[in-house]
Design a protein around this nucleic acid. Structure first.
Lengths: 105, 105
DNA sequence: GCTTCCTGCAATGATTCAGTTGCACAAGAC
DNA sequence: GTCTTGTGCAACTGAATCATTGCAGGAAGC
């Protein structure tokens, strides 16, 4: 997972409503219409959010007859967490090195 | 780190320019004016981004005379990564349980 | 066939956001 | 004291985004 694909994931996760959608999908896969029944937004709004989440690779669309069900891709979350952890560790390393140089002066 | 404070962090990380700012701060703490010399945006734009990053707890302001230097808080990154990993694991657990029930039918 | 439900596209409105310019003020440098 | 440099606030523009309503099409159910 490169840094370029990382930014859209964070952008997708940086919205409260989208977290509601993800939480609702935690009960199992569901269609946009089904989610609209549980959340205080219209079906179209949810469809847009699902499209954003799908673009970020956080959910996956599955056709089931005439309806389209969405399911969470937990692997994407884990991969993002790993990348974030690696970046944090890298920063720790660099900042520690800077501190060391500063003390050496 | 609660879920509420998590969303602003993701929103802050969901912007390419903000990543440029963070990367530039990886070389050590710097002021908004100094960063403006290295990035293709004005000082005010950078100041706004730094304000967002500070609000998310990703950077910290340090007064040094008349200038305000910002430094990365790598710990926030690590904490966010841990939370994300925990959420991913929780989803894995729930989705596995659902799958198990579905097979049991 | 007809009806019903779910999806998809288009247009609109309101809000937010990124970025700019301009100006005022404060603190070092000389 | 004067000049320079860094910061802060305010107003403005343009673009993106969130959410809405309305309507058309398509696939199952009867």
């Amino acid at each position: 997972m490169s840094t370029e694909t990382l930014v859209p994931v964070f952008a997708a996760l940086g919205d409260e409503t989208r977290w509601s959608v993800l939480e609702a999908l935690g009960d199992g896969e569901a269609s946009a219409s089904a989610l609209a029944g549980r959340l205080p937004v219209t079906r179209q709004a949810i469809a847009r959010h699902l499209s954003v989440l799908e673009g970020a690779g956080l959910v996956e669309a599955v056709r089931a007859g005439r309806e389209v069900r969405y399911r969470v891709l937990a692997s994407r979350l884990s991969a993002t967490a790993r990348r974030l952890d690696a970046i944090g560790a890298e920063w720790d390393r660099r900042l520690a090195a800077i501190r060391e140089i500063a003390e050496g002066l």
